[in-house]
Nucleic acid binder design. Sequence first.
RNA 1: GCCGAGGUAGCUCAGUCGGUAGAGCACUAGACUGAAAAUCUGGGUGUCGGCGGUCCGAUUCCGUCCCUCGGCA
Length: 309
Amino acid sequence: MTRPPLAILTGPTGAGKSDLALAAALALGGEIINADSLALYRGFDIGTAKPGPEDRARVPHHLIDVLDPDQDFDAAAYLRAARPLVERLGREGRPALAVGGTGFYLRSLTAGLFEGPGRDEAFRARLAGEASAGVDLYARLAALDPETAARLAPADRVRIERALEVLHVSGRPISQWQREHALAERPFRTLSVIVDRPPEEMAGRLERRTRLMFERGLPAEVEGLLAAGWSPDLKPFGAIGYKETVEYLRGRISLAEAVDKTLTATRRYAKRQRTWFRGQMPGARWFHPDQADEIVGLLRDFFGSAPAE
RNA sequence: GCCGAGGUAGCUCAGUCGGUAGAGCACUAGACUGAAAAUCUGGGUGUCGGCGGUCCGAUUCCGUCCCUCGGCA
């Protein structure tokens, strides 16, 4: 049994992944699996630069519009949803392209996650209560799992809570789970392509794109979602562009400020993405999106080649 | 024109009883195993508005000029 092939197409926000993915999928007869943590949500269209109906009619897109704003999702859920798709496309002999900027989801797809306990909402709620009552959760972790505490910053509450959760539910420190797993799963034969542009090009693109989002109705989209009864405290409303638009609609900031803050947050996000790709995707090939022919050729060879084993 | 407040990092501001200055944000580099568009870590990038005076030494005190914001005319 050979492993199914999977092509990853990623890059910082606004570099031009989606257009390239569409062209590549058309050229190869492939299908696109979304790897963007926010395009999963129905109704979050403009601010996520989600592919429109025309594009989705031309090439099958998976894992877009599959969640309501109040539905929990995480890397493990992504892995569970996306892996069967890659396997199915592999059986059908159709190229599978995972496309999106959520590096953590992509790495989970290709390298896995340790199979320990998932989220335990009741435990999380208890931790949140203790934290707001002044309990030092880092000190607790340092006492219960000093190895993990040594690796984490005292202010990194997301990872501290996760570490306490794993220990509480499984009785074993997260460091042990991680050591045993070591991100060593390789369920797919993978080719990773990153598209990026020089800073001068990105600056203008991000600015134009952000302004267009607001001009094309991001505030109206958010108003519609709120009018439908969704709470602005739900996770996807914390996303770049949405957070700022909610502030604007509440009258806390001006429209110009909302645009400005969104642009700044977008730039910072693109930088964080590059840092992730450099550090976590060492084997990836980097291209300018204008090198579409070269990229498609590379993908063609990849999907056409005999499995390596 | 007069009175008052102010002019310090890219921005908002703190501070220096005279010994060349620091926070947040921005910026930059990095981390990342079920929140990842999240969360976190390191790094200070500066004619302290201009000119002159006093002083061993002025961003700080004095004088003067410029600019900004209020109020009164």
